[in-house]
């Protein structure tokens, strides 16, 4: 009985904590242009709106000292190739040039509109 009470309490707490904060994703539609480095992340315009693609650096599995870290983008798996490396920076993958995307973004702690997910618009 006591264990079950404790379990319920914990579940309630987790539930409260989980739902205490909500962010409201916003959907944006447009073509991606002007990809550029921005505070170790990558910024781009979707239509006329600047959004940020959060970047992670993870230790590289290579002996190349210049590749100590490799870049990973915080984006849904099917579009991990949205940006590709080109001369020490990243640019829009040409295969997505001119395509219309539906971008879901939230506002983070810095006030940035950061991409949570992306998909081609049908």
């Amino acid at each position: 009985m006591k264990k079950s009470t404790l379990l319920i309490a914990i579940l309630c707490f987790i539930g409260f904590a989980s739902f205490a904060q909500t962010d409201s994703p916003i959907v944006l539609t447009g073509t991606i242009t002007d990809v550029r480095a921005y505070n170790d992340q990558y910024a781009m315009n979707v239509g006329n709106t600047m959004v940020v693609l959060i970047t992670h650096r993870v230790p590289g599995k290579t002996m190349n000292v210049n590749k100590k870290y490799v870049v990973s983008f915080d984006i849904n798996e099917e579009y991990k190739d949205l940006l590709i490396e080109n001369k020490d920076t990243y640019v829009l993958n040409p295969k997505y040039a001119g395509k219309t995307f539906k971008v879901t973004y939230s506002v983070n702690g810095k006030g940035w509109k950061y991409i949570k997910s992306i998909e081609l618009s049908k």
Binding site: F16, Q21, D23, I54, V107, N108, K110, Y114
Partner: peptide, 16 residues
């Protein structure tokens, strides 16, 4: 370590 943390008492996301 995060630009998108959430904590009780703070509305929306916050840098952690």
């Amino acid at each position: 370590w995060s630009f998108t943390a959430t904590y009780t008492g703070i509305s929306g996301q916050v840098d952690a």
